[in-house]
Simulated assay, not measured.
Amino acid sequence: MAGGNFHDRADEPATLYVIQNQARQALKIGVAHQDRIVGRLREHDRHGWTTELTLEFKEGVQALQVERAVIAFLRSCGVASHLPQCDMPQGGYTETFAHVGLAKLDLKDVTSLAELAARLVQRSNCPVHAHVLHLAEAADEVFRLAKDGHKEQARKLWALVQPVMEETIRALE
């Protein structure tokens, strides 16, 4: 098991990592059990990757949520290409991203995104994409109520939604 896949042990501590291979112009985001992270990163290092960020989680499921959120964001920005499997003999090629700079993103953007996603997941104990989706749905409902003439109901709902949105924005800073 090259990558130490642990979906069946996701309740155990894990580490999310972001690594870079400058020669291949690629980034990778991955997750490994905390008892395997040192070996996993050494294996990547042997293949030309450098560790740029590690984040520890008490539960692997949270690390997986952050990994999924970062991957989904990068793909939504058009960073869909990944390295071929033959370039990743140590495994994990599906979580690689080649030419991130084409989307006008850099390593700092990706590590900042991972750190933000980690804070949100740990604070809310829910996937980041679910958190953002719920905020968007609540804002849509405020606008729908106001448009339909239910301005008092819209104000009451906005009073509940606004502090959560502000907290999310503070987390981005």
Score class of each variant (00 low, 15 high):
M1S: 11
A2G: 12
A2Y: 14
N5P: 06
F6M: 11
D8M: 10
R9P: 04
R9K: 07
A10S: 08
D11G: 03
D11Q: 11
P13R: 00
A14I: 01
A14V: 10
T15L: 02
T15Q: 07
L16Q: 10
Y17R: 05
V18N: 02
Q22S: 13
Q22A: 14
R24Y: 11
Q25W: 08
A26Q: 05
A26G: 06
L27Y: 03
L27T: 01
I29V: 15
I29E: 00
I29F: 01
V31K: 03
V31Q: 03
A32R: 10
A32D: 06
H33S: 08
Q34D: 10
Q34S: 06
Q34A: 07
R36F: 07
R36G: 00
I37W: 00
G39S: 09
R40G: 08
L41M: 01
D45N: 09
R46K: 14
W49Y: 12
W49D: 09
T50N: 13
T51V: 15
E52L: 12
T54R: 10
T54M: 13
T54A: 09
F57V: 03
K58V: 10
K58L: 13
E59Y: 01
G60D: 06
Q65I: 07
V66W: 01
V66Q: 02
V70H: 00
I71N: 00
I71T: 02
A72H: 09
C77E: 01
C77F: 05
G78H: 04
A80P: 06
S81R: 12
H82Y: 06
H82Q: 02
Q85A: 14
C86Q: 15
D87N: 14
D87I: 06
D87W: 11
D87K: 04
M88P: 02
M88R: 04
G91D: 13
G92L: 01
Y93L: 05
Y93I: 04
T94P: 10
T96K: 06
H99L: 05
V100C: 04
G101V: 09
A103G: 07
A103F: 02
K104L: 05
L105E: 06
L105V: 02
K108L: 15
D109C: 11
A114E: 07
A114I: 08
E115R: 07
L116C: 02
A117S: 10
A117I: 02
A117T: 11
A118F: 00
R119W: 08
V121P: 05
Q122F: 10
Q122I: 07
S124N: 11
N125I: 06
P127K: 05
P127M: 04
H129M: 13
A130M: 14
A130I: 14
V132E: 12
E137Y: 15
E137P: 04
E137W: 15
A138N: 07
A139N: 08
E141T: 15
E141G: 08
V142R: 01
F143R: 05
R144Y: 08
L145S: 03
L145I: 13
L145C: 03
A146T: 05
K147W: 15
H150F: 09
E152W: 12
K156I: 13
K156R: 15
K156M: 13
K156D: 12
W158T: 00
A159V: 10
Q162E: 15
V164Q: 14
E166L: 07
E166Q: 03
E166N: 06
E167V: 03
E167P: 01
I169S: 05
I169V: 12
R170K: 11
L172R: 03
E173M: 04
